Amino acid sequence: MSKLRFGVVGSGAIADFTCKAISRAHSACLSSVASRRFSQAKEFAHKQQIPNIYKDWESLLEAQDSDAIYVASPTTSREEICLAALANHKHLLCEKPFLNAASIDKIAARAQSEGLAFMDATHFTHHPRTAKIIQQQKQHLGPVNRIHSAFFVSMMDRNNIRFDSHKEPTGAIGDIGWYNMRAIFEYMRPTGAIKTISGAIKRDSQTGTIISGAGLIEFASGQTSTFEFGYDSGVWQMDLDILGESGLIQLDDFVLDWRDSAAFYNPEYTPEFVVRRGQASPDKFEHQQVPIEQSQAVQMIEDFCRLTSPDNQVERIQAIERARATQSLIDQYCQAVGVAV
């Protein structure tokens, strides 16, 4: 079986990590790259052993040496590149966030009309632990009534693209808060529309970039979620509490697992989650381990490759629903805190 050939638009840190995952996947390989500066594309291609280098993304998309495009460009340029990739009949794996939910709808409609796969590049969705947690929820927690998540990274480098509001207009909301919102969709699957949403954000005093925030969402079903996120922390925090009628599931690495991810590499560690019920004290907490053979990023690539098969129409629709549901929560939170989308 031939490997899915990836063309890459972008040469930043996240593109570097995802390209390593593509190279490690059994079903994929790297074929081409384009970046804003040709010199960066050449350096990136040498590092990642990518055979074909293009002066711009338009040339890359028009070439016949790729089957799929991984888009790791700034948020404000993603829609244009995604639509052009689909017009050139390339499957599409795209970084998040998007401009808004309407932008996802445009991209999704074009992908479906062309018979192509479209998926956002959120790693933890593809971790086998995610499926195991959902299974445990059904068996032991009962209906999930509330979720609390906290995702903070220590990153106040103002030279980073994240601090350029012209390229990343929602700052930490879209970049970091995306994972809080995705956790709501993956682990709570709220029913009904949002009843109330409130929150607060903090802007960097020098650049005006949104660097952190917090919020509360109440759904018509009575389910609630509280969340916090940001760059202005001296530590990485990735905590998630999933509370059901009969217990609690906790993770302290829900975004990037401690074992093998974009930020951490501890090969001797086995990913796990903790189940608590009733008045159990720490010695009665259930630590459920989930051994993995490949990282969640590599699993994401493998899942995307399967998605490109025309037989997987249901999975394609589910991938679009995940992206749109997440972006829709981002949009509504932005509106609640006065950020234009």
Rank of each mutant, 00 (worst) to 15 (best):
1 M>K: 11
1 M>E: 09
5 R>P: 06
6 F>P: 01
7 G>R: 00
8 V>S: 06
11 S>N: 14
11 S>W: 01
15 A>K: 05
18 T>K: 15
24 R>V: 01
26 H>V: 06
31 S>H: 00
32 S>M: 04
34 A>Y: 01
35 S>I: 03
41 A>K: 07
42 K>T: 08
44 F>W: 13
45 A>K: 02
48 Q>K: 15
51 P>W: 06
52 N>G: 03
53 I>H: 08
58 E>L: 05
67 D>L: 07
67 D>H: 11
73 S>L: 01
77 S>I: 06
80 E>P: 00
80 E>F: 00
84 A>K: 04
86 L>G: 02
92 L>M: 10
95 E>M: 05
97 P>N: 11
104 I>G: 06
106 K>L: 12
109 A>P: 03
114 E>R: 12
115 G>M: 06
119 M>G: 04
121 A>L: 12
126 H>D: 10
126 H>M: 08
128 P>F: 09
129 R>P: 04
129 R>A: 11
131 A>D: 14
132 K>E: 14
133 I>F: 11
133 I>M: 11
141 L>G: 01
141 L>V: 10
145 N>S: 09
145 N>Q: 11
147 I>Q: 12
147 I>M: 08
149 S>D: 10
151 F>R: 08
152 F>C: 01
153 V>E: 12
153 V>L: 14
154 S>W: 05
159 N>D: 15
162 R>Y: 15
169 P>K: 02
170 T>Q: 12
171 G>K: 09
176 I>E: 01
177 G>Q: 13
180 N>I: 06
184 I>R: 04
186 E>I: 14
188 M>L: 09
188 M>H: 03
193 A>Y: 07
194 I>W: 11
203 R>M: 07
205 S>M: 08
205 S>V: 12
206 Q>V: 12
208 G>R: 06
210 I>Y: 02
211 I>W: 05
212 S>W: 01
215 G>N: 09
218 E>L: 12
223 Q>C: 13
230 G>S: 04
231 Y>L: 14
232 D>I: 07
238 M>I: 01
243 L>N: 11
245 E>A: 09
245 E>F: 01
247 G>M: 03
247 G>C: 08
251 L>Y: 08
258 W>F: 15
259 R>D: 03
263 A>C: 13
265 Y>N: 15
270 T>W: 06
273 F>A: 06
281 S>K: 14
284 K>E: 14
287 H>P: 02
288 Q>T: 11
288 Q>M: 10
289 Q>R: 14
289 Q>V: 09
291 P>N: 11
291 P>V: 10
291 P>W: 10
294 Q>F: 03
296 Q>E: 13
299 Q>T: 10
303 D>A: 15
305 C>V: 15
305 C>R: 02
305 C>I: 01
312 N>Y: 10
312 N>W: 02
319 A>K: 08
320 I>F: 07
321 E>C: 10
321 E>P: 02
322 R>V: 00
329 L>V: 05
333 Y>L: 10
333 Y>V: 09
333 Y>Q: 08
334 C>V: 10
336 A>S: 15
341 V>T: 13
